[in-house]
Design a protein around this nucleic acid. Structure first.
Lengths: 160, 160
DNA sequence: GGAATCATACTCGGATAGGTATTGTCCGAGTCTGTACGG
DNA sequence: CCGTACAGACTCGGACAATACCTATCCGAGTATGATTCC
């Protein structure tokens, strides 16, 4: 069970964009900030665009910016955008191949093993949905008060 | 984020073994019950053996049986045995490559993005750890009272 | 007849290929900028 | 001097390889069984 690595990059990029409001930032700059492969990060940002989390602009002075308010972007939104919506545990309804199976039953709902696993994932997703990018930003600003300003400065200097 | 398919097989196999106490059942029979590939299921059962969940016996009349009481086997135990212990979200500490990074900081604990994701997984694992195989068995026996007996009969007849 | 020995068949166990999803890269379509030209 | 047309460069976007993991399979090591042989 391995989550797409781009989720981490996407979350950090969202947080950084919160500190540069109203401006578009290119994938190149966002990648340079953490020394990430530009093209691959761009791929992840595209996914965020498709999900309506970011908006993109082409051409010079183009780039990405948040398309929604930070408190309206949950961690689950980002995870789903990058990693896909399907559950980790996939019920293949093996009971259907077992003896005494009911061909017309939906074992994704009937099978109690499937139900238990799904319940755990539900709790997991609920926890992710309860936290927004704004929450993370607020926590960072509380724990590391200098981070917002220094981040802003870094992107400003890079702009040169 | 895709979980190993063998988890589903392993869970169902554990449940079935609960209804055939004190006997060893071969991977071949367990596979035949759900029409699964024998060798691959065998691989999963090996993992359960290594984890101390099942015990294996070689030779004729050999096979697998539960090594612990059903109420002492949590769903998390099975998931970890098959799918591995590492978390889905892997913090690669990209902050270390960022500007103003502290080389001696452990960003898996410091980074608030990592913390939030880890918290969600913790809730997930806690939910899995709260349910045991015995719970599943009890639920099945309550919802489908005929299942234990018919399962027992199926394995008995197969023995022929 | 009973016991020990041996061949046999059956099981798990790990080592070995195949398929699929993730990771990484590249080039083209579109667009804004800045300049040059004409009025 | 001002407006317009144009060339250029920069960005995202999706299509294209490389890699790693999951899935699937096979054959060997070990063991209990059952028959056979010897006492």
């Amino acid at each position: 069970m391995k989550m797409n690595e781009g989720v981490e990059w996407a979350l950090h990029s969202c947080v950084n964009l919160c500190w540069i409001p109203g401006e578009t930032v290119t994938a190149k700059k966002l990648a340079a900030f953490y020394d990430l492969p530009t093209a691959y990060l761009n791929k992840q940002l595209q996914a965020l665009s498709r999900a309506g989390i970011m908006s993109s602009t082409s051409g010079p002075k183009g780039g990405f910016q948040l398309a929604k308010q930070p408190d309206d972007i949950t961690l689950l939104d980002v995870v789903v955008a990058i990693d896909g919506p399907e559950d980790a545990f996939r019920c293949t309804e093996i009971l259907k191949a077992g003896p005494g199976a009911d061909p017309k039953a939906d074992y994704r709902k009937t099978c109690l093993v499937s139900t238990a696993m799904r319940q755990a994932e539900l709790v997991y997703r609920r926890e992710l949905a309860a936290r927004t990018i704004a929450d993370i930003v607020a926590e960072v600003e509380h724990t590391f008060p200098r981070t917002p300003e220094s981040t802003r400065a870094w992107f400003a200097n890079l702009r040169s």
